[in-house]
Simulated assay, not measured.
Amino acid sequence: MSDSNTTDFSHPSTFILLGIPGLESAHVWISIPFCAMYVIAIVGNFTILFIVKTEQSLHGPMHYFLCMLASTDLVVSTSILPKMLAIFWFNSREIYFSACLTQLYIFHGFSVVESGILVAMAFDRYVAICHPLRHSTILTNAVVGHVGLAMALRGGILVLPYPFLIKQWSYCRTNIIPQAYCAHMAVVKLACGDTRVSSYYGLFVLFCVLGLDVIVIVVSYIQILRAILILPTNDARIKIFGTCISHLCSILVFYVPGLFLSLTTRYDQKVPQHFHVLIANVYYMMPSMLNPIIYGVRTKQIWGRLLRVFIPTGT
């Protein structure tokens, strides 16, 4: 392994994941909050899925999309956290080339899926507020299923070039990835030759896909605000807008830090590497951990069902 950063090779059999470069001595301590975040994400998202499945009153479009969001968060967090914890706890740094590409594809693909689900949830809020009488006819169970399938196919197809492009590059410098998981640009930066196709395609996915998603969400909320502002009383405005708070919180958690990290990864050379890697790891766990908390606290039906599970009424 000592020659892994100097040996010439075109396609390495393994990559070496460093975890948090420069903070190796603190890996065990760093693992504690990450393990706690992962446990919260697993318990929280499975709880959401269980409650929606067992509570008949929650069988509607918004909560079906919420189940899709919870499932996606489970896949995203599980695609990176077990290997990350193995690095922190057991110094298990090697990852096979094919396993690295698989992790990369699942992680980025389901991140695109999550963005699409947030768009679908924005459309659900738009129809529910701006066209309430047509909500049940527009967003039928079949339509919700088709939207979910379309978002899954979009994520899978758009990210599919990532591993194929990476596989065609030669790697003559190093097989060391200075973080705890295989991310697209982290692997591309190890390749020799002209890798601009991978870099440009990554930017296309970032700005074209996520950018378009943000535009659709913004347009939806402009229409929602217009509908809210014409309501006759402040109480009615607050009540209607309150149904959007959970979704808005999820949007902020997902898009704002993600855009910042994607841009700094490519262009900002002043951010210390260990700081950037640490913050990126925290960010990628935030939606998975916070979404079930946000919706569990803000959604009365979910909160009420959860209370009945742990505090059964005996009267």
Score class of each variant (00 low, 15 high):
Ser13Thr: 10
Lys83Pro: 11
Ala26Cys: 11
Ala86Trp: 12
Asp268Gln: 02
Glu24Leu: 10
Leu81Asn: 09
Met285Ala: 09
Ile228Met: 12
Gln56Phe: 15
Leu263Ser: 00
Ala99Glu: 15
His108Val: 09
Gly314Lys: 15
Ser79Thr: 08
Cys182Trp: 12
Tyr96Met: 15
Ile222Ser: 05
Thr265Gln: 00
Gly22Asn: 06
Asp213Trp: 01
Thr265Pro: 00
Leu118Phe: 05
Tyr181Pro: 04
Tyr255Trp: 02
Tyr255Asp: 01
Val219Cys: 12
Asp268Glu: 05
Ile51Val: 06
Val127Gly: 14
Ile129Met: 15
Tyr38Leu: 03
Gly44Phe: 10
His146Lys: 04
Ala191Ile: 11
Glu114Gln: 11
Arg266Glu: 02
Ile224Asn: 05
Met121Gln: 13
Ser13Trp: 06
Tyr96Glu: 12
Leu58Lys: 10
Leu17Ala: 11
Leu153Asn: 03
Arg308Ala: 13
Cys67Asp: 10
Tyr96Leu: 14
Tyr96Lys: 14
Phe123Tyr: 15
Val52Tyr: 00
Ile311Ala: 12
Asn234Ile: 15
Tyr295Arg: 10
Ser79Asp: 06
Ser71Val: 08
Ile251Thr: 01
Val253Ala: 01
Leu85Asp: 11
Gly258Tyr: 00
Ala142Gln: 12
Met285Phe: 09
Thr233Gly: 14
Met121Lys: 09
Pro21Met: 07
Ile176Gly: 08
Tyr255Glu: 02
Pro21Ile: 04
Val187Pro: 13
Val209Lys: 01
Ser220Tyr: 07
Phe310Ser: 14
Leu261Gly: 00
Gly156Cys: 04
Glu114Ile: 03
Gly19Cys: 11
Cys244Gln: 12
Val187Ala: 13
Phe110Thr: 00
Phe123Pro: 15
Ser31Asn: 04
Leu229Gly: 12
Gln269Asn: 04
Val277Tyr: 03
Ile117Thr: 03
Ala120Cys: 14
Pro292Phe: 07
Ser98Ala: 13
His274Cys: 04
Ile80Thr: 06
Ser25Tyr: 07
Trp29Asp: 11
Pro82Ser: 05
Ser2Glu: 11
Val119His: 00
Gly211Gln: 01
Leu225Trp: 11
Thr174Pro: 07
Gly145Lys: 05
His135Tyr: 09
Arg266Thr: 01
Leu210Val: 02
Lys53Cys: 09
Thr78Trp: 03
Trp303Lys: 05
Thr233Tyr: 15
Pro292Ser: 07
Thr72Phe: 03
Tyr181Ser: 05
Gly193Lys: 13
Val147Ser: 00
Pro82Trp: 03
Phe110Ser: 00
Ile251Val: 07
Leu190Ser: 07
Gly148Arg: 01
His108Ile: 03
Gly44Gln: 07
Asp73Trp: 06
Asp8Tyr: 07
Val205Cys: 06
Asp235Gln: 14
Asp213His: 04
Ile166Phe: 14
Lys189Trp: 07
Val119Pro: 02
Leu49Ala: 02
Met185Arg: 02
Arg308Tyr: 11
Ile217Thr: 05
Leu225Phe: 12
Ile222Asn: 03
Asn175Ala: 05
Ala26Thr: 06
Asn175Glu: 04
Val119Ala: 01
Pro132Arg: 08
Leu206Gly: 02
Leu278His: 06
Ile32Trp: 09
Val76Met: 13
Ala227Val: 13
Thr233Ile: 13
His146Ala: 05
Ser57Phe: 12
Ile138Met: 15
Ala128Gly: 15
